[in-house]
Amino acid sequence: MTAVPAQPAPRTRSVPGSGWTVVAAKEFGDHLLSARFFVLVIVLGLAAAIPLYFAAAAIREVASGVTDTQAIFIALFWLAPDVGDQFTLPSVTGFMAYVAPLLGLAFSFDSINGERAQGTLPRLLSQPIHRDDVVNGKFVAGLAVIGLVLVTVVTAIAAFGIIRLGIVPAPAEILRIVLWVLLTFVYVSLWLAFGMLLSVAILRAATSALVGFGAWLLLTFFGGLIVSLIGGIIAPVAGTAEEALRNNGTQEALRRLLPDTLYREASLSLLNPQVTSVSTPATIGSYEQAQQRIPSLLSLDQSFILVWPQVVALVAMTVACFALAYVLFMRQEVRA
């Protein structure tokens, strides 16, 4: 046994301040061995594989006739393939935008209330760690698992693309993909933080799962519809061309309240160098300008500048969610 000094003299052994690493290591191990990890890897893999297959087919068709091969490989990620009869599948990024939130929610919706339900929270907090070590450790473990899953899935997509297309991505394309993975990581972290907030605020894991998945459905599937509805009431796209464009801008701003929109805009600009603007023109003048613009490919830094506000907004939402969860947890009674 360790030599603890006799008592009641103040102890000499220093108490290490990194209890969160122990918590994070344990949680990370739990996640990797959990059933939900396997389920999510499979779900995410399938969600990416279906559009990937059709996108690859579409690219093979055009690629043979194109001489300018720049940024062909990366189209694998953003191309929304037509699958006969005017039916268009979402692109790989589109599928990610739908499914990725699940990844975040699944690893956090029961992180705190699960401990409560099991009766392990008082025991955990009575160990020599700070109270925030628990939330911090769990959040870090969640981030690590998310990163692992994303890197695995994207690497698999890229490998598939290289084999199927026979095109090796250019360095610039690889950089774009890496940035896009980071962006997706931030987007999933937002949902992880949101799930964590739910797990602190809601005492029952089942309830917090329901609320989380409800929010996911609402924001990713119906969010656009709801925002269009509200936008249509307060700023209908009608009247003169000038008015219609202005109101369209208002609606666009509203839509950007949804993390889903931010993520789609940012990933499209990051992946597709042909995208030169994320906003539709708000005046006739700029509309005409956009018409006259010569199609060109943006360099990576230009693309990044274009989506900087979106990225910042996503990071800010993530931080806000986690901060709220953190504060709530610190103020909660141990027995709640």
Binding site: V4, R11, D30, Q118, G119, P122, R123, S126
Partner: peptide, 14 residues
Amino acid sequence: KRRVGYMPDSVGFY
């Protein structure tokens, strides 16, 4: 907490 062993009411484990 380093020197106090505590077993809570209705103790739980993973």
